[in-house]
Amino acid sequence: MKQNRPVLEYRLWKGNETYTPLYFYEHIELEQILARRECEFFIKEGVTYKQVSSAKEDHLFVIYVEKYEENPPEPEDPASRGSLKLEIRELNSIKGHPLIESVYLDDHLDVLSYIGSSFTYFLNKEWERDSAELDEDRKVYVLYVTATGYEWESEED
Rank of each mutant, 00 (worst) to 15 (best):
N4F: 07
E9C: 12
Y10L: 15
L12V: 10
L12I: 10
G15Q: 03
N16L: 12
Y19M: 08
Y19H: 15
T20H: 07
T20Q: 15
L22W: 01
Y23E: 13
H27K: 13
I28K: 00
I28S: 05
E31A: 14
Q32L: 11
Q32T: 12
I33C: 04
C39P: 02
E40A: 14
K44C: 09
G46R: 03
V47G: 00
K50C: 06
K50S: 12
K50H: 06
Q51S: 13
S54P: 01
H59N: 14
L60E: 10
L60H: 03
F61G: 00
V62Q: 14
V62A: 07
V65Q: 01
V65G: 00
E66R: 09
E66S: 13
K67S: 05
Y68I: 04
Y68R: 02
Y68T: 04
Y68S: 14
E69R: 12
P73I: 09
P73K: 02
E74C: 07
D77G: 04
S83I: 08
K85T: 06
E87V: 06
L91D: 15
S93M: 11
G96N: 06
L99M: 07
L99D: 09
E101F: 14
E101T: 15
D106R: 12
H108Q: 13
L109Q: 12
D110W: 04
S113D: 08
I115Q: 02
I115T: 09
I115W: 01
G116T: 06
N124M: 01
K125C: 11
K125M: 10
W127G: 05
W127A: 00
E128F: 02
R129K: 15
R129N: 14
R129D: 12
D135G: 08
D135T: 10
E136G: 10
D137K: 00
R138Y: 02
K139F: 05
K139T: 10
V140L: 02
V140N: 00
Y144A: 02
T146Y: 07
G149E: 03
Y150R: 15
Y150I: 15
W152Y: 13
E153C: 03
E153H: 10
S154A: 11
E155T: 10
E155F: 10
E156A: 13
